[in-house]
């Protein structure tokens, strides 16, 4: 128990160092900083525009009202901002694996998954996270759920699910690169499955929905948190999904470590 506490403390200290370095790197106001904030805002705007246009023609989308879709989009944006904030290094994984730049992970004092994926803290993404949380808060206020005490209990739960699931999925996609070198498989899987999580899962058939909740659980990234907060999903179902994604995540991390054992420097 004390060993686990010690390990947690060490990893939190590492996270603080990654954040400190990230802040120092981006502390000067540069065009790049503004561009990244703007880039994500443009991405948010295209999503908002798409659903606002579609729901201008219909009162609901697969049973979701415009207000509910906005709450859902809030979680989509928070999930994206979390990826940009902490998991930006994942975009370089395929290239670094091919070029044999992962040697240092073998000797550094920490869990390789954490050390690799959390090393690039992005200060500009913190601004995007603020934008995403503001939009989520505004959307939740518009549908009138912020006044309910239960919402303040469900919100931290829902946001924790977003952060955990985002990390698990990012690691899962990158595992494919160990077996399909220089294939962009991680990018493709991320694009394919995360794009599915950008729409309420109710638009899909029952089988596909089950697949996206259980096999590649992108539904837990956005649909489950939004449904929990909106009361479309009961706490018991929420607990079931949370337990599954927790166990799934631990399995994914073991899988990644097994893949990492295949790494022999300069794989290209």
């Amino acid at each position: 128990m004390s060993a686990a506490r010690g390990s947690l403390r060490r990893h939190l200290a590492l996270a603080r160092q990654f954040a400190r370095i990230g802040v120092i790197r981006k502390s000067q106001f540069r065009v790049e900083f503004l561009c990244q904030v703007l880039m994500d805002c443009v991405w948010y705007a295209t999503h908002i525009a798409l659903f606002e246009i579609l729901l201008g023609h219909s009162r609901t989308l697969a049973g979701w009202t415009l207000g509910e879709v906005r709450v859902f989009l809030g979680f989509v944006f928070v999930a994206d901002a979390f990826q940009m904030l902490w998991l930006g290094q994942a975009w370089h994984f395929g290239r670094e694996l091919k070029d044999g730049r992962l040697d240092a992970l073998r000797v550094r004092p920490g869990w390789p998954v954490f050390l690799y994926f959390f090393q690039r803290f992005s200060l500009e993404a913190a601004v995007n996270m603020a934008v995403a949380l503001s939009y989520l808060g505004w959307a939740a206020w518009r549908v009138g759920i912020l006044g309910e005490p239960s919402a303040w209990l469900l919100l931290p739960w829902a946001l924790s699910l977003v952060a955990w699931t985002r990390t698990v999925l990012t690691v899962l996609y990158s595992t494919a690169e160990f077996y399909l070198l220089h294939s962009d498989a991680a990018h493709f899987l991320n694009e394919a499955f995360t794009a599915a999580a950008d729409r309420p899962l109710d638009v899909f058939t029952r089988r596909l929905r089950a697949f996206l909740l259980s096999v590649v659980p992108v539904g837990v990234l956005t649909w489950v948190p939004a449904s929990l907060l909106l009361g479309r999903l009961g706490p018991l179902e929420g607990l079931g999904h949370s337990a599954w994604i927790a166990a799934f995540g631990l399995g994914v991390f073991r899988l990644w470590r097994a893949g990492f054992r295949r790494y022999e420097s300069a794989l290209s």
Partner: peptide, 25 residues
């Protein structure tokens, strides 16, 4: 593998997902 992913599969998922959205509507 990269060639198939980059050149063949790119741009197929987005439209497929939109078909589901339109189907639901």
């Amino acid at each position: 593998a990269g060639f198939v992913v980059r050149e063949v599969l790119r741009g197929v998922i987005g439209p497929a997902l939109m078909v589901f959205v339109f189907h639901a509507l």
